[in-house]
Amino acid sequence: MRLRKDVIPNDHTDDLESIARQIRLRDLTAVFEAGAGHIGGEMSAIDILTALYFRVLRIRPEEPRYPDRDRFVLSKGHVALALYVTLAKRGFFPEEEVSTFLKPHSRLNGHPNCNKVPGVETNTGPLGHGLPVSVGIAKAAKLTGALYHTYVLTGDGEMQEGSNWEAISAAAQFGLDNLTLIIDHNRFQQGAALKDTNNLAPFRPKLEAFGWDVTEIDGHRMKEIIPALERRGERPHCILAHTNKGHGISFMQDRVDWHHKVPSAEQYRIAVAELSEARQ
Rank of each mutant, 00 (worst) to 15 (best):
K5E: 14
K5T: 08
N10W: 09
D11F: 07
H12D: 14
D14F: 02
L16K: 03
E17I: 00
E17S: 12
E17L: 04
I19D: 15
A20Q: 07
Q22M: 05
I23C: 05
R26S: 10
L28P: 04
F32I: 02
F32H: 15
E33K: 03
G35K: 06
H38Q: 02
E42C: 12
S44P: 06
A45K: 08
A45R: 06
A45L: 11
I46H: 03
I46W: 09
I48V: 15
A51V: 06
L52K: 08
L52N: 05
Y53S: 06
F54I: 14
R60I: 04
E63C: 05
E63M: 09
E63I: 12
P64F: 00
P64C: 01
R65Q: 15
R69W: 04
D70F: 03
Y84I: 00
L87P: 02
K89R: 14
R90I: 08
F92C: 07
S99A: 14
F101W: 11
F101Q: 13
K103C: 07
P104L: 05
H105M: 13
L108F: 04
G110D: 06
G110Q: 03
N113G: 11
G119D: 15
V120M: 06
E121C: 02
T122A: 15
T122I: 15
H129R: 12
S134E: 13
V135N: 01
I137F: 14
K139A: 09
K139N: 13
A140V: 07
A141G: 15
L147K: 15
L147F: 06
T150H: 07
T150M: 07
Y151S: 05
V152D: 00
L153A: 09
L153Q: 09
T154F: 01
E158K: 02
G162P: 04
S163G: 08
N164D: 05
W165E: 05
A167F: 06
I168T: 14
Q173F: 14
Q173N: 15
F174V: 04
G175H: 04
N178M: 00
L179K: 10
I183L: 01
I183V: 14
N186M: 10
R187M: 13
R187V: 10
R187F: 04
G191H: 14
G191I: 13
A192I: 11
A193M: 08
L194Q: 04
L194P: 01
D196C: 01
D196W: 01
N198H: 14
N198K: 14
N198M: 15
N199R: 11
P205V: 04
A209D: 06
F210L: 03
W212A: 07
W212N: 03
G219W: 00
M222K: 05
I225E: 00
P227R: 12
P227S: 12
P227C: 13
R232A: 08
G233W: 05
G233Q: 09
R235L: 12
R235N: 09
P236S: 09
P236D: 05
H237V: 03
H237P: 01
C238P: 05
H242S: 14
T243S: 13
N244G: 02
N244M: 11
K245H: 09
H247G: 05
D254R: 15
W258Q: 04
H260N: 12
H260M: 06
K261V: 02
K261F: 05
K261Y: 10
S264A: 10
S264D: 03
S264Q: 08
Q267T: 04
Y268G: 09
I270H: 06
L275F: 11
R279Y: 07
